[in-house]
């Protein structure tokens, strides 16, 4: 039987030069995609293949001949005859500074890869002076745009603040937030469309917030955890992981990841069960599977505990 399916419009190939090497890339693809295809590494933080590129972290900038300023490779599309440099002096300088800016203002201790990049680009985040004291709980949430109190001269401003723990499933440590917009995008138009999160405020005082900074249980949050899944820094973290880390028992080298299907409704969401010592410690979903694109709902993301409760008790409280 003939199967009629939708056809994507035809894509032509575009010729361009990357780091002196002539290559061809499909029309409409980004410089980043072209680079990755040919094996050129470009660091990224705010980029994720399942999200609309916001190109805000600027760590992926490259130099394009004829362009006055550097361009974000994650969103700039290839053009015929484009000449791209991924390691020019300007590029290296901007990347180093972006990494310094982030590392000097944000706790990157749980951001994968970043320690390596800081070394590769010889970034020195400590050269901006010692950090100013952390903000009191909630203080950054009340900052109004257009005004700020400068820190004591000699100190550097940071976004350090206490962790927000207001539910049993996940927590928000905005001292680790690089404002990559991923959580807002995942919660918003890109996937979940719940819009529990926004960027509030402006400039250095911008922060991820609920409406009037209310706690999550008062907000629109539906605990799908799709924000956690895209957070690149660990600012959003499963309570299970947080507790393990606090207890010093988090050990990714002892973890296995097994792909299976969610036990709940009939949508067939793919789960990745992260298991340590025969215990599920967190659940993710593969980005490249078209049923979920990495997304789950509260049941798929957090509804696995019953499996473990069986070992200790015959049946969960509350039925």
């Amino acid at each position: 039987m003939t199967t009629l399916v939708s056809l994507a419009p035809p894509r032509r190939l575009v010729s361009l030069t990357i780091d002196g090497k002539g290559i061809e890339a499909p029309e409409g693809s980004t410089i980043l995609e072209a680079c990755r295809t040919q094996g050129t590494e470009i660091p990224t933080l705010c980029y994720l293949e399942t999200l609309h590129p916001v190109n805000v972290c600027r760590v992926c900038v490259v130099e394009v001949e004829g362009s006055r300023v550097l361009v974000p490779s994650c969103s700039r599309r290839v053009e015929p005859g484009m000449v791209v440099k991924t390691q020019s002096e300007r590029v290296v300088h901007s990347r180093k500074m972006v990494l310094e800016f982030l590392a000097s203002s944000v706790d990157l201790s749980t951001t994968p890869e970043v320690a390596r990049w800081l070394g590769e680009y010889a970034a020195r985040p400590d050269r901006y002076g010692p950090p100013a004291p952390p903000a009191a709980a909630g203080a950054r949430d009340g900052l109004e745009p257009g005004h700020h109190d400068p820190v004591e001269p000699g100190f550097r401003a940071t976004v350090a603040q206490p962790t927000k723990i207001d539910n049993e499933l996940y927590l928000r440590d905005y001292g680790k937030c690089i404002l990559c917009y991923k959580c807002v995008e995942a919660c918003g138009t890109d996937h979940q469309n719940t819009f529990a999160l926004t960027v509030a405020g402006r400039g250095f005082d911008a922060r991820i917030s609920t409406e009037f900074a209310v706690e999550l249980p008062r907000s629109a949050c539906v605990y799908c955890g799709n924000c956690i899944a895209v957070c690149p820094t660990g600012a959003l973290m499963f309570k299970s992981e947080y507790d393990h880390r606090a207890a010093g028992t988090w050990d990714e080298s002892r973890q296995t990841v097994t792909q299976t299907i969610c036990p709940y409704c009939g949508v067939g969401c793919n789960l990745e069960l992260h298991v340590q010592d025969n215990e599920i410690v967190k659940v993710t979903s593969p980005l490249d599977h078209d049923v979920t694109e990495g997304n789950l709902c509260i049941k798929g993301r957090f509804g696995w505990q019953f499996v473990q409760n069986r070992a200790s008790e015959e049946r969960p409280q509350g039925g």
């Binding site: 539910n167 049993e168 499933l169 999550l216 249980p217 949050c221 539906v222 605990y223 036990p263 709940y264 409704c265 709902c297 509260i298 049941k299 957090f302 509804g303 696995w304 505990q305 019953f306 499996v307 473990q308 409760n309 049946r315 969960p316 409280q317 509350g318 039925g319």
Partner: peptide, 17 residues
């Protein structure tokens, strides 16, 4: 949203909802 049928499985986690 946060519960499933008779709640035997979803009763196992603490849903803020």
């Amino acid at each position: 949203l946060d519960s499933y049928n008779t709640g035997v499985q979803t009763g196992g986690f603490t849903s803020p909802l």
